[in-house]
Design a protein around this nucleic acid. Structure first.
Lengths: 260, 260
DNA sequence: TATTATAGCGTAATATTAACGGAATGATAC
DNA sequence: GTATCATTCCGTTAATATTACGCTATAATA
């Protein structure tokens, strides 16, 4: 740690604040539905660009605590899978011609100027979160006009650098797919081989031979076949599978090599 | 972004500071020498625990700017390879029974108490940096008694959570080894196959058959054989190799799969 | 010129991955 | 009942990649 003399001689610091300045947490909340990867986005009152669910860091929280709190506020779910994938910071990243102090003042009837802390330099610590689409109940807050799922293949105009964050999250997720068992949180507890196969194809955006895919995934030991089948209408019923909790946790900790 | 009403109504913000509060940058600077991976550490005046080279974020800098500046201060080198590997933050991570405000006051003859900003909540954005050991001139600053290389296999007692940061950096480096061409910055411009082989063995901490290793690395196209040999004394002279700049940059951007 | 330690080349055995044919299943239509 | 159809699921072979390891070449020294 390098100690700057100017700062060193200024011992005054106001600890009364609930949140820390300069730090925000943004969350790329992902779900899987209809063979599409979805991301949960929100649109602030009176604006037509979108934001990732985000918030600030409380003095009493760790980074992951904050990310969990933020994810819970938008999804109503606990015990989510969260993974930090990067920190974004530059002097101008909180400048956006479509989200200015002036516009915000007009809408909110609070006077907000360029010097307001909200438009100060913020470093955003980013997480991606995997959720079970069916269980998520998207809800915004008083400041948000909408909070809904968007397909990652069709992202609306985003404020700030939030589009970059989504791309970075997806890149990290694709990398993790080869080293960690992904799917536990994105799928229902019991799922079929074709279902998890579709999920992987969707995330990687490429075709995978389902016969070989099944063999390889079963060979890792992280999923196990059940003695049940799923009714899917006028076709042969596929077997149901579920993750083997022990093997799954193990693979998550140690990391595995999954060659698809 | 979630807007808290309490904060929203407090538009006052002092922009006179040079650095941002609550944010620090820490740097795991790595070098390779004598078949050992080394990390550059510094020990503050009057303390017997060590710190990673670190510093604060200036209002005018991006995160990577700050990390570069900090790396340059300690190594005297420009154009280093820097990679962000994580942000660390929790309410108590800047508490360490061996580095208290009291002790620091005693040593520095400035009065520093618990409320001093230095002991406030800090989120540290961490980078690892790859350097050419021979070119680095380690130097601390007025607050540091020592700034020297340590083998990563023999890390001295560290302050705060800096040991965790080193471990996390190494874990990330090992992962990157399989996806990006690593070695460009850690080795001299021209190097032999046995040299880069030793480097990879050292980083991964496992034996790799040199005959197969050579074939695989050459097959990727990122290194090319020169018409020169290196004199190594009483033995057969090995050929020199160097990275192919174009292929290297390409591989760094797109990522490759290196199976060792 | 023999010795020694290291570099470098080639190849056979083995394992892994990719490609794909075809049977089984569960409902529906006739 | 039986034919039809989309889908699941099992298995086999061919192609490819990886691993293991023997052998030769080289550079200095004794």
């Amino acid at each position: 740690m390098q100690i700057d003399t100017i700062l060193m001689n200024n011992p005054v610091y106001d600890q009364s604040e609930l949140y820390l300045r300069h730090i925000s947490i943004d969350n790329v909340i992902l779900g899987y539905h209809n063979k599409e990867l979805k991301v949960l986005l929100q649109r602030p009152q009176g604006f037509n660009k979108w934001l990732l669910p985000g918030g600030y860091l409380k003095r009493t929280e760790t980074l992951i605590d904050a990310a969990e709190r933020i994810a819970k506020e938008r999804t109503n779910l606990d015990n989510l899978f969260l993974k930090q994938f990067g920190a974004f910071g530059s002097p101008d990243r909180t400048k956006d011609s479509d989200f200015t102090p002036q516009k915000l003042s007009d809408i909110s009837d609070i006077i907000i100027d360029d010097k307001h802390w909200m438009f100060d330099y913020f470093v955003s610590i980013c997480f991606y979160t995997l959720t079970d689409f069916e269980k998520v109940q998207p809800n915004g807050d008083a400041y948000m006009e909408e909070c809904v799922w968007w397909s990652v293949d069709n992202i609306p105009p985003m404020l700030y650098d939030h589009k970059d964050m989504i791309n970075s999250a997806l890149k990290t997720l694709r990398l993790h797919l080869y080293h960690y068992p992904i799917g536990y949180e994105l799928l229902p507890k019991k799922f079929t081989l074709p279902e998890i196969h579709s999920l992987y194809e969707t995330i990687l955006n490429k075709e995978l031979d389902i016969r070989n895919f099944g063999k390889k995934l079963i060979a890792t030991g992280i999923i196990k076949k059940l003695d049940e089948k799923k009714k899917i209408g006028a076709h042969r019923s596929p077997y149901l599978y579920m993750f083997d909790d022990n093997q799954y946790k193990d693979a998550l900790n140690k990391g595995i090599a999954i060659i698809l």
